[in-house]
């Protein structure tokens, strides 16, 4: 059964048609990749699902609920967490406090004594334990991406939407990250919707890949089928 479903989503920005009648589905418990060349509309799709942008036409259904046009914080509380491609840390707050924001809005009853250790766990899970008391503005780009993931996990979502979290990592770090994300799915039962330019990672982790090109769905299939497809190759090569 599809946990997240989009029906005929369209969106334009002034003169740019960013999405055109996009249909897609993310199955519960799956890792679904979303790929496509720069400017294909991937982030725009995420923004509409997460309520960060007002929708154009079409509908988004999550877990049986229509969430189209709902405010972002409600969508988050329903169980969708997202990371930002261009990271948006709370710069003046410590890493621990960054994660705590996600916790206390889910569990307002918790005081500092309770959320402190919880936040620490999320930070340690992404390898930022040692930087808990550092102001987030001092992190480097890779650490900021990890903080995005820790915060997203701290909302205890059903669906995790990742927007290019592997940028800047070397091959071995990518392996670790892929392992980490698969582990999230296997042990916590998370569903993952994942935008990534690093094809190798998607090939390994995803069961299904959706390819966007110029705002349209170019094809949907297994990673193998997708990388072998003529249309996908030419879209990436830009012919």
């Amino acid at each position: 059964m599809a946990l997240l479903e989009g029906r005929r989503l369209s969106k334009r920005f002034g003169g740019v048609q960013a999405l055109t009648e996009v249909d897609f589905a993310v199955e519960a418990g799956a890792i679904v990749g979303l790929i496509g060349p720069n400017g294909a509309g991937k982030t725009t799709l995420f923004n509409i699902v997460a309520g960060a942008l007002p929708p154009g036409e079409g509908q988004v259904v999550f877990d049986g609920w229509p969430i189209t046009g709902k405010p972002a914080f409600r969508i988050c509380r329903r169980g969708i967490a997202r990371t930002f491609q261009v990271t948006r840390p709370f710069g003046e707050m410590t890493c621990l406090e960054n994660v705590a924001v996600a916790i206390v809005n889910r569990r307002p009853d918790l005081g500092r004594a309770a959320w402190g250790p919880m936040a620490m766990e999320y930070l340690e899970a992404v390898g930022l334990g040692a930087l808990a008391e550092t102001a987030a503005k001092h992190l480097n780009v890779i650490q900021k991406k990890r903080l995005e993931i820790a915060r997203a996990l701290a909302t205890e979502p059903k669906l995790l939407m990742l927007d290019e979290v592997l940028g800047g990592l070397n091959t071995q770090e990518i392996q670790e990250a892929v392992g980490f994300i698969r582990d999230l799915r296997d042990t916590r039962g998370l569903t993952v919707f994942w935008i990534e330019h690093v094809m190798g990672a998607i090939m390994q982790a995803a069961e299904k890949v959706i390819v966007l090109d110029q705002g349209r769905v170019l094809m949907v299939g297994t990673p193998k089928a997708v990388v072998a497809d003529e249309r996908v190759i030419s879209a990436y090569l830009g012919t």
């Binding site: 988050c76 930002f84 948006r88 840390p89 924001v101 996600a102 206390v104 809005n105 997203a152």
Partner: peptide
Amino acid sequence: ANIGLNFRAVQNDERAAAALGVDV
């Protein structure tokens, strides 16, 4: 208090705050 975390989150970045469940 917890609300103070929300105050500062909203001041730092309201879009990120909303994405984490803060009713801005």
